[in-house]
Design a protein around this nucleic acid. Structure first.
Length: 389
RNA sequence: GCGUCGGUGGCGGAGUGGUCAAUCGCAACAGACUGUAAAUCUGUCGCCCAUUGGGCUACGUAGGUUCGAAUCCUACCCGACGCA
């Protein structure tokens, strides 16, 4: 079980400072939650993750179900013991994979689709495809869940609220998420309404399925439609059993959407329960996320970009695949206190590693990026404390 | 010295008379990435203009055959292997 205490509420925004108590320790909120999809923050050892200042990790039900299987994780003593991570943990329900393997894959869209990129799909393609009754190519929805094929073995598999919760209980993280459908940008109101009704049923089914004492968050959907977002928030809030809230789904065409949607949703949620924004957290978004009243949020950006050579620094992004950096003797970021920047590593070396595809390059940048994001979030917590956010 | 095979864009390597500025891979360069099927994906990649498109120079070098050659012929240069 978890406990959430609010330490301070901002007068300027919906931001708040808090302490989230879990069986594996406390999380000072707002906090960023790095992503450890397959029980690993890609490229880092668990002791290195600790060195980034990370407070909590989120792993993935879908991926761990496919490999190595939740039974292995349970037999190992649960996700924390399994991956030698001592801090708090979450598992995502696998709902997002339904999206990324379904509509997301069919249309090549992510959670945020720029107006320019969207122009390729809107209005006809997605809307026509997503009309009620249609199915994405790689997954099949039923009332009880989603059928899909394992990309590993080709075997037919099924994931629904019952299955997801059973798997998450075996994984044994401190916090679980209800199984939901994450709809793509461009979702019509009609499809969204239909999907939301199903996600709501799945929310109740997830709760009913829970046998353990792990915390369970219900998820708010509704895409870019104000009335549906609000309806969803009211519904999830009305269910007693949830220990917190997840806010998921697409947020429209730009990062402005994050603020707008949180603005619709968080006022309707019981303020005593923690709120987690699912899958958002570009550096430019974080202030809005906090101001919108989210307590935790996860994002693949620091880890994913690191492996593609991008470092986030106090002066913006730096691309470590660019040849000119081979001559730079500077650290990744002079203003950064991370073990990489203070440990003697220089841009020339890391650039060489990235260009030579040495895994150490991605590892060093991952360490730096997560440290940088954590430090940035800590700075914003300070801003809330001082009444500036 | 003789013989055989071969010399293609930064590299590797296709192509063996027209649809070839030349498949493909690598490198290089540019771009994308927000609950990670993502150490991935996309684009450019002879030169000069241009929006489709056009012009120029190119397949070791120099000639030749042909309406037309990276592709055929001759000589030369270079490389690998074999024989002396």
């Amino acid at each position: 079980m978890i406990e959430f205490k609010i330490a301070k509420k901002s007068k300027k925004s919906s931001a708040r400072l808090g302490i989230l108590k879990t069986p594996h320790g406390e999380v000072e909120t707002p906090a960023i939650v790095p992503v450890a999809t397959l029980a690993a923050v890609k490229a880092l050892r668990s002791d290195e993750i600790e060195a980034t200042g990370t407070q909590m990790l989120i792993s993935n039900t879908y991926h761990l179900h496919l490999q190595p299987g939740e039974g292995v994780v349970k037999a190992a003593g649960g996700i924390n013991t399994f991956m030698n991570w001592k801090g708090p943990s979450m598992t995502d329900s696998g709902g997002f994979q339904v999206f990324s393997l379904g509509w997301g894959r069919d249309f090549g869209v992510g959670k945020v689709t720029s107006a320019k990129a969207a122009a390729k799909y809107y209005p006809d393609k997605i809307e026509r495809a997503i009309e009620k009754g249609n199915q994405p190519k790689h997954v099949t929805f039923t009332e009880d869940g989603v059928k899909f094929r394992s990309p590993l073995t080709g075997d037919e598999m099924f994931l629904g609220p019952k299955e997801s919760i059973a798997i998450q209980e075996k994984l044994g993280a401190d916090i679980m998420f209800a199984f939901d459908e994450c709809t793509p940008p461009g979702t019509t109101r009609e499809y969204m309404a239909h999907s939301l009704a199903r996600t709501n049923r799945w929310a109740e089914a997830s709760l009913t399925a829970r046998k353990s004492k792990q915390a369970l968050y219900g998820i708010v959907q509704g895409s870019n439609h104000e009335d549906l977002r609000k309806e969803s928030a009211r519904f999830v809030n009305s269910i007693d059993g949830f220990d917190g809230f997840g806010i998921g789904g697409d947020i429209g065409e730009s990062r402005e959407g994050t603020k707008r949607i949180l603005g619709w949703v968080t006022p309707l949620l019981d303020e005593r329960k923690p709120r987690h924004l699912l899958g958002m957290g570009h550096i430019e978004d974080i202030e809005n996320i906090m101001a919108g009243g989210a307590d935790t949020f996860d994002c693949t950006v620091p880890t994913h970009y690191a492996r593609h050579g991008i470092a986030f620094t106090s002066k913006g992004r730096v691309d470590f695949t660019k040849a000119p950096l081979l001559k730079s003797k500077e650290p990744v970021d002079r203003a950064c206190g991370c073990p990489v920047c203070t440990g003697g590593y220089r841009r020339n070396y890391i650039t060489h590693l990235m260009r030579a595809q040495e895994i150490t390059g991605g590892a060093l940048l991952t360490l730096h990026n997560i440290w940088f994001f954590n430090a940035y979030v800590a700075k914003l917590r300070e801003k809330i404390r001082k009444g500036m956010l």
